[in-house]
Design a protein around this nucleic acid. Structure first.
Lengths: 212, 212
DNA sequence: TAAGAAATTATTCAAGCGTATAATAGGCGC
DNA sequence: GCGCCTATTATACGCTTGAATAATTTCTTA
């Protein structure tokens, strides 16, 4: 019986495809559905190949989690422009596609649920969380300083914790039940709430909407 | 060879024990570690008994999720006293033990990750979420009205969404990385942030600390 | 174009999975 | 104290799992 033909792919590409297939499986069927065989089918290869690229199933999950975190944070951490624009973009990016959708949440929750089981996943998580909060703390500091407000480390830390919490929570709500909210209701609520917390108004939305 | 001796338990008690064992397994080893056999071992019975009480593994997971949600929300929804006390207690309860700890988060995340896979779990989640937010919306309305502030439905809804998000997010932060925060830092941040969002001050903490 | 390295497929294995069924023993009503 | 009901144990079944190994094909390079 004839063997199936195949294509020899560059290592980076194949690893990427396998991780992508892993994420698809997790999003569709949950962590339990992400079996070596399912991942292989999704990637269009046979199961054995996975172990050629990854030491074990745990390892592919760890790499997949790194990708998930990177996608959730990379855009927000690369905002540019003046402090106010950067802060506003940071907020909007985190509450709109592609960061905020049910797939992101499924993936995120799947991995979070394993953080207490796999110490390596815990380390990956911790790193991503701190880097995200530090980015926010920096944005807040710059913005407050530019407005001539108190930008002391203590105040920035407290504000960063609160606003980070607010963003996380609204992101959760949006991902879990987006249809319960109006088109950009969550973004508006986030912006006005953060204005209130900072005691400062941001420029009207239109001024920003133009460059997105 | 001798059969092991056993105790015939009342149905309610046995079901409770089995669900408790299920939660222990999930918290310790993740959803994948919550196998029928592991659950049985944890509960001190044999695997077959589980199917005597639950139609299938899916059913025991659904009932377990109901318990998890109930524990996360029941205390907060039963606050008593004047509007201000109820609101403050609601906030504090959600950010301290036993609601806020890593076990709660593991369980919550495990089930959330399956919400997109199992429609029954999705329904259970939706119900819990709405009931929680409605409770908060009611507390806010009562509190604002008692202070003679604008308590219109629209304002209450927006405040409930924002404050619910803030609480969820801070709960997350605390569960995931409690050691990054001081003793009651998160509670303090939540209280002052919510004061700011409402534009009202609550009585000093000590007045409440007494009755907890 | 021939050869060799290694990427990929194919096959196998033991362990563990959820479920089904049969045998047993605990405890209640009489 | 006896007998019955059924909660519980014990065992078995068929599948799927992650992993290991052997067989093959692709592609580079000399």
């Amino acid at each position: 019986m004839a063997r199936r033909t195949f294509h020899r792919a560059p290592e980076a590409e194949r690893r990427h495809d396998l991780i992508e297939a892993t994420l698809d499986c997790i999003a569709e069927y949950g962590l339990e559905g992400a079996t070596v065989r399912q991942i292989a089918i999704k990637a269009g290869v046979t199961a054995g190949l996975i172990r050629h690229y990854f030491q074990s199933k745990e390892h592919i999950l760890q790499e997949a989690y790194r990708i998930v975190i990177a996608r959730l944070t990379e855009k927000a951490e690369r905002v540019t422009g003046d402090p106010e624009t950067r802060l506003r973009d940071f907020i909007v990016i985190n509450l709109t596609e592609p960061v905020a959708n049910s797939r992101s949440l499924s993936l995120w929750a799947s991995f979070i649920s394993r953080v207490s089981v796999d110490p390596e996943l815990a380390a990956i998580h911790r790193e991503g969380y701190l880097s995200f909060r530090n980015a926010l703390e920096g944005l807040l500091g710059d913005f407050l300083a530019a407005r001539g407000e108190d930008a002391s480390p203590k105040r920035c830390r407290r504000l960063a914790i609160a606003i980070n919490g607010l963003l996380d929570g609204l992101w959760l709500e949006g991902c879990l039940a987006g249809e319960l909210f109006g088109e950009s209701e969550l973004v508006e609520i986030a912006l006005t709430s953060i204005e209130t917390l900072l005691g400062l108004r941001l420029r009207p939305v239109d001024a920003i909407g133009a460059d997105r």
